[in-house]
Write a protein that binds this DNA or RNA. Structure first.
Lengths: 327, 327
DNA sequence: CTGAAAGCGCTTACAG
DNA sequence: CTGAAAGCGCTTACAG
């Protein structure tokens, strides 16, 4: 099946078929009808490979996420999709599992010209390597922000958000605040840890306890809190750098019959759905997930559309603290 | 950048460059070196569009899910990915949000020859429409099973699984079992409802109450249970057709201080992570998510590799009932 | 072992 | 308004 066959059946040239396919206004109505009829008769579908090879434009972008099972990622992706759809772009999702080999394989879609640009949510530690492959193709980094890099990014100010949480906990009389963090190869993890340390210092708190969850899932959050509570001195508040971890923490505390927030307060990060239906409900930093995704796509589109190299920018979007029952 | 440039720089023909690119054994070592050097020097990356147009083989398949935010979907996708990777395939994810227009747009990747096949997790109600677009391209339906269709599928036996849950609840003395279901355009929703009704009948239970959650998320589950409990006669057990809904149900009951499982038992469906960390933990039907994905890919690969049309099959994988605190 | 040439299925100046 | 022709960047018989 090809334009040739359609052309033959319709009794016109392939050029005319192509014009009909692309809604060119300069086709006589009669011919257009004939072509349309032929297309329908043969159930013709244009070969995108050929079209895109010819036009060197695909109308698709790649979204590379480290873990689609992370609800925060999923929410950001929805934002990207929404904005992409508005602009007639299709989005291809690739799940890297923080695996460099997989990221590399995905990015062949970019270097192989199958997509017009890429939005990554990968760890900042992998950035130099990715930079190498991506070169200066259109690229926006999401939820990770490297001030030294020339890659545009969209995120929140993780440091000040975390500092704010510490302030809030101190206000309610908490003095021994622990942090449950995760993989430090992510910039956001580093920043939230920094904000935590800043907060402790600002309030002159001596207690400082950081524990790293193995994975970014519920059970790892639960394990983390169980091991944390084995220490001689218990915390009276726990900040988890993700609601997913925090939900596991709440379950762990419930099992041990620890009163939340009286004995131990819990605060999460992200503001994903789960935070509303834990028992007790979870106080958290609400990230503007959809907006992060939308903004990321907009920035990417600017890069795609402009011929000259666009100035790279780092966007910081506003966050809000949502106080619920757990603190 | 193209094979031409490499050929010129290396002082060989484009054919030779192509042979090196494709690891053909019949290239003299000297020439291979020269080509490799040129590739490195120019940081050349082959154009996949051109290659795939020429070979009419892409090494990519499309996974179309109705909602990546659904952890069950995410788990199945991981299974697909694992098996795909083993076989040197890349997987492209598209999120349809159960939107037919979006599904249609995604499927252009298939008809446009950008992928070799598709695995769908869309509602069975959309099947005829999809069938139309997909034609007889390689296609496997996941977690949805239409005995009348000629599309291969992989799922569990939803009817008997649900019947089994009812048996278990009855064994613990429950008599008024309610069902929280969701969008009936999905076959699994219909089947689980059928299993529920069969179960009631088998045990001669008079109480029958079905309520439909608006969305497949925590809050809809919570809303559903709150409205359910407004009825004069309360259930003494609730079966939710998804753990996501069940987690919301548990939260709702907790807020109303209903004792689980004494006053009302709760059972979910899927066996995703959340079921382990609700308070109390959630009894559920464990689906073999990863295996469903793996099997789906295997079936798809068979279709892709075989020239003749493969017999379509419907695979039913085993499920298990996991009894936890909530029942 | 290598190269010239054809061709995958499109689009797009160009000439008419 | 339309068609012949070139060309996007590859791969692959074919001949040598």
């Amino acid at each position: 099946m090809s334009v040739q066959k359609i052309a033959k059946l319709a009794g016109v040239s392939v050029a005319t078929v192509s014009r009909v396919l692309n809604d060119s206004p300069s086709v006589k109505a009669v011919n257009k009808e004939k072509v349309l009829a032929a297309i329908k008769a043969l159930n013709y579908q244009p070969n995108l490979l050929a079209r895109q090879l010819r036009t060197s434009r695909t109308g698709m972008i790649l979204a590379m996420v480290s873990n689609i099972a992370n609800p925060f990622c999923a929410a950001v992706v929805k934002g990207i999709e929404r904005e992409a759809e508005k602009n007639g772009y299709r989005i291809l999702l690739c799940n890297t599992e923080s695996d460099l080999e997989r990221s590399r394989s995905c990015l062949q879609l970019l270097s192989g010209k199958m997509v017009d640009g890429v939005i990554t949510m990968d760890a900042i530690s992998e950035l130099p390597e990715l930079q190498n492959i991506i070169g200066d193709a259109p690229w926006v980094q999401c939820a990770e922000y490297d001030p030294d890099s020339s890659v545009s990014s969209v995120s929140i100010d993780d440091i000040s958000a975390t500092e704010f949480v510490i302030d809030q906990l101190v206000k309610t009389g908490k003095k021994r605040i622990a942090l449950i963090n995760h993989d430090l190869s992510y910039q956001y993890a580093q920043h939230r840890e920094l904000g935590y340390l800043n907060g402790l210092k600002r309030h002159g708190l001596a207690y400082c306890e950081i524990i790293y969850a193995d994975e970014l899932d519920y059970l790892s959050g639960k394990e983390a809190v169980l091991s944390l509570l084995k220490n001689a001195q218990r915390p009276d508040a726990i900040l988890a750098i993700s609601d997913v971890l925090a939900a596991g923490v709440i379950n762990g505390l419930n099992e041990l019959n620890v009163a939340i927030p009286e004995d131990i307060a819990v605060v999460g990060f992200d503001g994903i759905d789960i935070s509303q239906i834990t028992t007790p409900s979870l106080s958290t930093i609400q990230q503007p997930c959809k907006e992060i995704g939308e903004m990321a796509f907009s920035l990417l589109l600017q890069q795609i559309d402009s011929t000259s190299s666009v100035k790279r920018v780092h966007h910081l979007l506003p966050w809000t603290f949502i106080k619920r029952q757990s603190s």
